Each structure stands twice: as C-alpha cells, then as structure tokens.
Amino acid sequence: MVRSRTPTGFMMPEPSFRRVFGQVDLRRLESDPAVDLLADSPLDPRSGADRRLLGRLELLITGWGTPRIDARTLELLPNLRAIAHSAGTVRPVVDPIVYDRGIAVSSAASANAVPVAEFTLALITLAAKRAFWAADRVRDGAVDADLETAWPAVGIRGRTVGIVGASTIGRLVIDRLRGLDLDVLLHDPTVRPAEAAELGAQLLDLPELVARSEILSLHAPSLPSTRGMIDRTLIGSLRPGATLINTARGDLLDQEALVERLERGDLVALLDVASEEPLPRDSRLRGAPNTFLTPHIAGSIGTELGRLSAHAVDEAIAFAASGAFRCAIDQTTFALRA
C-alpha cells in the first residue's frame, strides 16, 4: 500500500521566509516522497487561490511574523494536523485552541537556543574579566585599566554564576559552564534538587541565588508568573560589583529599578533585550554607567539561521513520514516554557 503524501505549505511574511529558508532545505522538502509541498513560497490567506491551498494543508510551516493560529485562522485550515515552527517560542503563533483541536506542534527552539547559549557564555567570560569596562577605559585614553583596583573581583576562576530558569537555553549555558572552574547556582521552581545536581548546579530559591551571585544570567520564559520576577528588592540585593546578564526577555525585570541601581555605579548590566524594543532613544538605560547593550542579537542571525531552516524541514519530513514530530511541544511544555 502506497502511503499518501502530506499536503504541506508555509505561512509567514515573505521577508522572514527568504531570510530563513535556503534552497538546500527547500529542495529537501520538495523532493521528499512523504511530502506534498503545495507551493515553494508562503501562502497568503488574503489570496483566493492560496486560501484554496490552505484548505488542503495538513502540515503548516510557520515562522517569524506568522499570523496567530487561532479559531478564525483555523477556519481556513480545516485539515490541519501539525504546525512546524521555524523559530524559537511558539507563543506568538500558537493559540491554546490548537491543542484543543489535537494539532501537533513543534518548534526550532532547541536550534535557536544554541547561539543564545554561545552568546551568553561569551558575555559571562568577558564580564568576569571586566572586559567592557576595560574597553571603555581604553577608549577614554587610559594607559592602564587597573582592573584589580577598580573592582572587588576580576577573573573567572572561583566565581559564582546564578542561572535563573532551566529552560533549553539555561540548560545549555549550565552545560557550557561545566568546563570552567566556578560555582553554578540555579533557580527554577519546576526543577528538583537532584535534577539540578545532575545538571551541575545547586538549586536555590530566588532571593538567595540573587544575593549570592557574582554574575546573574536570566533564562526564564516570559509568563504571567515570571514577568517582573527580578523586582526592585532583588535588584537592590545584588552584591556590589555584580553583573546582570539578560538574553531572555526584557519584562523579566524591573527596568526602572535596574537603571537606578546602575546609576549608583556599583553594578554591571549586559542586556540583549529591553522592556521596550527597539529601545527608545531617550531611554535612561542608554546612558547608564557600566552598561553594555545589544539589539536582541543573541538568537539566530546570519549563518545561524540555517539551523532553524534545517530543523523545521527535518521536523516536517518526520511528521509527513510517521505522523509524529521528533521534538513535539506538548501542552505542559507550552504552558511552562514554549
């Protein structure tokens, strides 16, 4: 008996599609015997012809900028059985009704986590060396940065790094820290002490972790329970000379309280995200001392986008061939991390 091919298509803005999907992965998808690729470019729900194709789709590949798959969108997708997301979090795209309808969901979060973890590890290493402060001194004309006099601790050996969130990225960061001679602390209410020990970290409640950390790195998802979790009190409890790294979401912390603490001059912040993006030109954060800002670049960009494309295509082919994703996101994971 010959298995029928799975009608498959893309739905996302054309620029997102062209940015992520290369010809090699498109050809892999197009030539796979289990996949019936209805179009080699994104389908537009506003087009009558594309709406007819959407009505046939069983497998949808989404990405940055895909319209939310809610009850109204699902009316256009009566045969939909699976969504393969070619980016990290599926929250902007997947409405909970998707799970109510029994539609399988996968995401490229594990692929997107790799460059974020790499970027974070680089920030931790450079922060421990006070490299950003030293670079500013050089720019200002100093001959000798005199790091050991200016800061209470310099160097990575023996330092204490606190990780907030045992997300996919958080776990990758902990794994990459294993080879360094330092102590790793972890806060995540979903993790047990034995599991934290297996990861290579000591599990603590959040106030103790923040107070003990010399370098604090945030990797929690943005959920109602996590927004503002690093509040004014916790920011005030950071030890003098500590470094706060945020490559997760800007709404995890009280940005105003952070700016006030930074303006005291005894804290360092390395921030790839902000509570409002792009960061307003008049934001006090731009002028805060000991602050290194990047415009949300920790995730996949440039050559790294190939991982997202390959992951989404691998997942699509796996579902078309077997009826199941290799890296499915169930409802529990969606609620806690996705």
Rank of each mutant, 00 (worst) to 15 (best):
M1T: 14
M1R: 14
P7K: 11
T8F: 02
G9Q: 13
E14G: 07
P15Q: 12
F17C: 04
R18V: 11
R19Y: 11
D32K: 06
P33I: 11
P33D: 15
A34M: 00
L38R: 14
A39E: 13
D40F: 01
D40T: 15
D44K: 09
P45E: 14
R46H: 12
R46C: 09
G48P: 07
G48C: 07
D50T: 06
R52D: 15
E58Y: 01
I61Q: 09
I61V: 15
P67T: 09
P67W: 08
A71Q: 14
E75Y: 02
L76R: 14
L77A: 09
A84P: 08
S86D: 07
A87M: 08
A87E: 07
A87K: 05
V114D: 03
E118C: 04
T120W: 03
A122P: 07
K129M: 13
A135G: 11
A135Q: 15
A142S: 14
D144M: 13
A145E: 13
W151A: 15
P152S: 13
A153L: 11
A166P: 01
I174Q: 07
I174P: 02
D175V: 01
D175C: 07
G179A: 12
L180R: 10
D183I: 08
L186F: 05
D188K: 01
P189E: 10
P189A: 12
T190H: 11
V191M: 07
G200C: 10
A201V: 13
D205L: 04
D205R: 10
S217G: 06
P221T: 13
S222G: 13
T226W: 02
I230D: 00
R232D: 06
T233Y: 10
L234I: 03
L234M: 08
S237T: 12
R239I: 05
G241W: 01
N246T: 03
T247G: 07
G250E: 03
D251E: 15
D251Y: 00
D251K: 12
L252T: 01
A257S: 10
G265P: 04
D266Q: 12
D266C: 06
L267W: 00
V268N: 11
V273H: 07
E276P: 00
L279K: 03
P280H: 09
D282G: 03
D282Q: 10
A288H: 01
N290H: 15
A298P: 00
A298C: 09
A298L: 03
S300R: 00
T303C: 02
L305Y: 10
G306N: 14
S309T: 09
I317W: 01
I317N: 00
A320D: 06
A321G: 08
C327K: 13
L336V: 04
